[in-house]
Computed example of a mutant assay.
Amino acid sequence: MAATQVIRSEWTKIRSVASTVWTLSLAVVVTVGLGILISALSRNEFDNLSPQDRLAFDPTYISFAGMSLGQLAMIVFGVLVVSNEYSTGMIRTSLAAVPQRGTLLFSKVAVATALALAVGMVTGFITFFLGQAMLGDLRASLGDPGVLRAVIGGGLYMTLIAMFSMGIAAMLRSPMLSLGILMPLFFLISTILSAVSATKTVAQYLPDQAGSKIMRVVTPVNDDTPYGPWGGLAIMVAWVVAALLGGYLLLKRRDA
């Protein structure tokens, strides 16, 4: 089957499954909604901040505060796109129709990535503009240094989270097992490691910690991260490539 036909087939699969549509919609709603709420709260609390905290105030990054929960939906989306066929047994039919396993996997990833990128970019810009509206006179402008990079970076971050989840799901094949690893990694392990001085250096190189650097415009006080925004995004891309390569190699070697 030609690659274009496989891509068309994967597009049909993804848009016909209600769960994928709902998870992408949830990613937008949660990220935008929390961003608005936290931006409004930050505006009200700004006068109570210490002079040091005021210097570190980052209106752009604050508007992306909802991303921490919005990425949850992107993780679920990435996992479901790949592992749904394994849980239903449809993967055998897909492999019979497309014996070239690499073509099947990367067509699926390409379609899902395009969707995630579109949703991520729309979410990033909507979140930024509405968040800045809530911040009032503390708001940042899209033309300010580093702001456009941060907004575009927010969309790229959401996309890479979904792609990383696809790679993990391709390796593990089970939606429950994939989510059982990804959820603690991003919402528990990463937070704990970054809070402990002995493991803080390790945490800086985890995909979420490194990738989220792209959304910062103002460098936090006492920030000793050894890389900048684009360096952090490059680290996250390396994690994504490793996960997808691992999924591809295991798909080639294992039975359906």
Rank of each mutant, 00 (worst) to 15 (best):
G136N: 08
L135E: 05
P99V: 06
L244Y: 04
L104E: 08
I181Y: 10
A18Y: 15
R92Q: 10
A242K: 14
S16M: 11
V119N: 02
F129T: 09
M183C: 10
A18L: 14
S63A: 01
V32G: 02
V32S: 00
G136E: 13
F64T: 03
V218N: 07
G33Y: 03
G146N: 00
W239I: 07
T60M: 00
I168A: 12
V221T: 14
S174C: 03
V122F: 15
D58W: 08
S165I: 12
Y61S: 00
L193D: 12
E45L: 09
L251S: 02
Q204W: 14
A150R: 05
I36M: 00
L105S: 12
S39L: 01
Y248P: 03
T225Q: 00
Q209S: 09
V147N: 10
S68D: 15
K108Q: 13
L206R: 03
Q5K: 15
L245G: 15
V151C: 03
L160P: 10
A238R: 07
M236N: 14
V79A: 03
L130H: 05
V237P: 10
F46E: 05
P145R: 02
V109A: 11
G66S: 07
S25V: 08
A97V: 09
G78V: 04
T199G: 12
M1K: 13
W230R: 11
N44T: 12
P226H: 07
S19N: 08
F186K: 01
I181K: 06
G228Y: 08
I38F: 10
L251G: 05
I62G: 00
R43S: 07
I36W: 01
F46R: 09
T60F: 01
G228H: 06
I168E: 07
Y205S: 03
G70S: 13
V217H: 02
D144L: 15
F187P: 07
Q71V: 11
V21S: 15
V17N: 14
G232F: 05
D53L: 01
A118Q: 14
S42N: 10
M158D: 13
T225G: 00
A112N: 03
G154N: 01
G246Y: 08
M171C: 09
K213H: 15
V241S: 09
K200Q: 05
A234P: 07
